[in-house]
């Protein structure tokens, strides 16, 4: 008997070490049938499973506009994530999804986009950024404010450099605490966001990161003139089923997995 909790099998094609505790996994679904079924949009998430250890929830960091790879960035935190970090290229894992809603890519057309990310929270934003870059004509200017605790905690370093060189794409990278030969900005994301002060005119802000950062970013954005409707955030809760059934990720009557994670 098949059931909705059975994952698709996927092979790990490549593992990229982003920081000391974050790795990006490039996956390929084993079955061509499931490849067809696994259609996702930026902002959606999936359940990643290591058989024998368990499942954990991750947002998809890749974009559907580049269908050759499916990417998840995993920060080592608990039992499952530690097990994921111990995997090798060529190992088989399970992937279940895509779940949740996505960034409103259609409504965003023609708008200037302000991305504000913290730490591993860049992952869902990266999916949308690359989506936008692949449909460049449809969207306005991009501004990215991204921060991490230390320079060593910045993820997607290579891409950050590439983005910086892209026209109409302003990147502002910051760290909470400088270390090593860091020559960039030092300061909390909301503060830097205030300094950069992207215009609120015809713009939408998209933020993802730790809850405390989101709180202050939202405050800063509204001071910059962003209306609540023009601020999109993604939330995270402990999830198990991804289908609104297991009952733990609700905020009020809303289930983050089913009605979110994009709000």
């Amino acid at each position: 008997m098949t059931n909705i909790y059975t994952p698709y099998l996927a092979k790990i094609k490549k593992i990229i070490k982003e920081t000391h505790d974050v790795k990006t996994f490039q996956l390929e679904l084993v079955n061509p049938e499931s490849k067809k079924k696994f259609n996702y949009q930026p902002g959606q998430f999936a359940e990643f499973s290591v058989f024998g250890v368990g499942e954990s929830t991750f947002c998809l960091a890749s974009t559907p506009t580049r269908p050759e790879v499916l990417e998840c960035s995993v920060k080592k935190a608990g039992k499952v994530t530690s097990a994921i970090h111990e995997l090798w290229e060529g190992d088989t894992v399970g992937i279940r999804g895509p779940y949740g809603n996505n960034f409103p890519v259609k409504q965003l057309k023609g708008k200037n986009l302000v991305f504000v990310g913290g730490g591993i929270g860049l992952a869902p934003l990266r999916s949308l950024i690359n989506f936008v870059l692949d449909n460049r004509g449809d969207y306005g200017n991009i501004c990215l404010v991204y921060g991490a605790r230390t320079p060593g905690d910045l993820v997607y370093k290579k891409e950050l450099e590439d983005w910086d060189k892209t026209p109409d794409f302003a990147t502002h990278i910051t760290v909470d605490k400088s270390a090593g030969n860091w020559k960039g900005t030092v300061g909390f994301v909301p503060v830097i966001l205030g300094e950069v002060a992207p215009g609120a005119e015809n713009a939408v802000a998209i933020t993802c990161g730790p809850p405390i950062m989101i709180k202050f970013v939202v405050k800063e954005l509204s001071e910059l003139g962003f209306k609540a409707a023009d601020i999109i955030t993604t939330l995270e809760m402990k999830m198990k089923c991804g289908l609104g059934k297991c009952g733990r990720c609700n905020i009020g009557k809303v289930y983050v997995c089913k009605d979110g994670p994009v709000f």
Binding site: Y5, V53, K240, C246
Partner: peptide, 23 residues
Amino acid sequence: HCFDVFDEARRERGARFRCYDSC
């Protein structure tokens, strides 16, 4: 109806279970 999802395995074989969880 809230439940938890977890794996139980011994060597190469195992199963994914769901069991009652409590808020």
